[in-house]
Design a protein around this nucleic acid. Sequence first.
DNA 1: TTTAGATTTCCCACCTTTTCCCACTTGGTA
DNA 2: TACCAAGTGGGAAAAGGTGGGAAATCTAAA
Lengths: 147, 147
Amino acid sequence: MLIGEYIHTIDIKNRISLPAKFRKELGKRVVVAPAPDQCLFIFTMKEWDKVSKYLTGGGNELSFLKADVRSFNRFMLGRASDAEVDSIGRILIPEFLKDRIGLKDKAALIGVGDRMEIWNDKTWAKYKENAEKSAEVLAEKLGGERK
Amino acid sequence: MLIGEYIHTIDIKNRISLPAKFRKELGKRVVVAPAPDQCLFIFTMKEWDKVSKYLTGGGNELSFLKADVRSFNRFMLGRASDAEVDSIGRILIPEFLKDRIGLKDKAALIGVGDRMEIWNDKTWAKYKENAEKSAEVLAEKLGGERK
DNA sequence: TTTAGATTTCCCACCTTTTCCCACTTGGTA
DNA sequence: TACCAAGTGGGAAAAGGTGGGAAATCTAAA
């Protein structure tokens, strides 16, 4: 399970080190995908299988018939990119994905259970501040929904 | 069962000794997680399993499709950290969690049944004081009501 | 098709941080 | 007083993260 927060630099060649604690679980290849909120998702290949199967409706339906599904899938699948982890644990972030979330020098790498997220460090700091405020409210709400 | 209050120092390497009385129950690995109020929770792996299962909700659906779930999981998982207990009973507290609760030199370690809590010692002192006061006020009030 | 330039990939090297020991101190106990 | 357990501190070795050069590949122009 991926947990914790790490701040790493993106070098001029668009490389970024995966946190050492995540490497075993992430494996030799990962998928970098655009995500809701200002971040990128990093999936293991296994997790990506699940995600892409789910999004394409597991092959049972013609997922392209629904407009929202079409556009969400274009967003998520169409702009995803698989990346090889190099011999010392780094991956390349494509320029267009970097631009999307305003990645500059420092990135926040966040373990969120079965995926990793990449944020611009500043954006993450702001996000956390807000999350802190609303966390209790949110906890109540989620607690209520489960029952 | 974890009970009692201990004041320990955090050294310059961010290490903190677990109270000897807690070590057996906490085991070789624990998870440090942010918590409501100005403190951190220390879970045993067993307790943490329960928490994380709850958060990932079984895994049949894609948890990241819902905004509430995304933010709560980021808050809870993204800012947690698993820590190995070293050979003499210490754990490391990540910088970002130290910052969150304003941990400096001295920390209060509180046994609260099935989990341990970490507080800034000053914050803990104040918290106790208030709890004490409100208890007195409450006692007065109850006494007065009796006539 | 060839060549020059640019980009990507692979590898090595440095430096900082973390980890693993070992040792000191203090306080309680026999 | 000697001993033991608990807590604290610090040095050395290992690991993690960062940067950069050289080889390989690609692109474009002649």
